[in-house]
Nucleic acid binder design. Structure first.
Lengths: 215, 215
DNA sequence: ACCTGAACACCGTTCAAGT
DNA sequence: ACCTGAACACCGTTCAAGT
């Protein structure tokens, strides 16, 4: 025996190791040579299980998002939508490289499941059938799109040991902008300093939900 | 004389040529060797004007988005927001590589100007000062995030000569999903087939605006 | 100060040769 | 059928040498 299973080369094993590498060193760190080294094989061997780097990246992103669709089971439609959105946010936050890996709406299994689940909640909210796609799309696209944006921000700020310091610095920048050209941005500098990314993300979901309710 | 100006190597000229190359061959087509060839110089020369490839990409994206913030001047707050969102959509649609080039919220000049303009409209809508940042961020983040998503879809579908055929194919796929697991997606297959990307994008903006109005 | 372009240290992917 | 790893055709970036 000797755990032969976990040593065997397989698509799942490759994806698993790829996620590890991506979490550790980001998208740039994922090379077939390094993967091959970890898997004790040659780079060419990987091509028997994944088509190319792009497909591997997509598979890794899908794997990381699989559980998002089952969040908030048994809760009210509104809370379920918030729970799913939170799960998507958390998954992207924990694996920021997923953000870069644009998962176009429901083109991959994990996001298709999210889309379906959102569709169910929207319908339970009383949205007429003809308006389902518009509402479900707005919510799902917001989750992926804005989730990605947050990941990009997080990656850019990765060097900063102190997130608060980074926010304060940007806030000060805003406060010192030209008063004639940027009055509103100056006005928002304080709110920007004190905001929480996840709350802000969910506030946007709430606005869309309020818009759906107001129809 | 002999149009010495346009031959001189400069940051602006490099960005200009980069945009051309990106429009023609996408992000993968942008190499310093090719840029140097077009500009009749060596690849090393470019580093006297741009720090690296990433900075060049960011500068190109910013240049393409500069005019978005001035859209919808003189219109009602609601229409101005829609006009700005439409301009952002069109810019990303015309230069899909901008999508990949995640422009984190108001970190770059062009998006800062968009954010400011959105902030002004939101305030004109009667949103109290304390809620300005939440509303303006939701709108701006949606524009960038979902605009990116659309660009990714457009790039993925690039090979298709016929967008209608691609939509029909995906719609059929949805309609043939398992009825127990994907009832809502099946229900939305028809609406998905007939939807227009730009309209759907603006419908999302409308939902957020309705949510803001409903407070 | 700016340009040149060879050189460095890598890539993803392919493919003949092996098992 | 699957693996191996050298080889191919590239990259971004640096830097000594020029102007």
């Amino acid at each position: 025996m000797r755990q032969r299973r976990s040593d065997a080369l397989s698509r799942e094993r490759i994806v698993e190791v790829a996620i590890d590498v991506l979490d550790r060193d980001g998208e740039a760190g994922l090379t077939f040579r390094r993967l091959a080294l970890t898997l004790k094989t040659g780079p060419g061997a990987l091509y028997h299980h994944v088509a190319n780097r792009e497909e591997l990246l997509a598979a890794a992103a899908d794997a990381v998002l699989t559980t998002a669709s089952i969040a908030g089971a048994g809760e009210s439609p509104r809370d379920a939508v918030r729970a799913i959105a939170g799960a998507v946010f958390d998954a992207i936050d924990a694996h920021p490289w997923v953000g870069r890996q644009l998962v176009p709406a429901p083109a991959q299994p994990a996001m298709l499941a999210v889309f379906e689940r959102i569709g169910q909640q929207v319908r339970a909210l009383g949205v007429p059938d003809a308006a389902l796609f518009t509402s479900a799309s707005a919510l799902t696209n917001y989750m992926i799109g804005v989730g990605e944006l947050n990941a990009a921000n997080a990656l850019a700020a990765q060097g900063d040991t102190d997130r608060t310091a980074a926010l304060t610095q940007m806030s000060d920048q805003w406060a010192n902008l030209d008063a004639h050209a940027y009055p509103m941005t100056r006005l928002m500098a304080g709110q920007m300093r004190d905001h929480d990314d996840r709350e802000q993300f969910l506030d946007g979901i709430d606005l869309i939900l309020a818009g759906i309710a107001a129809r």
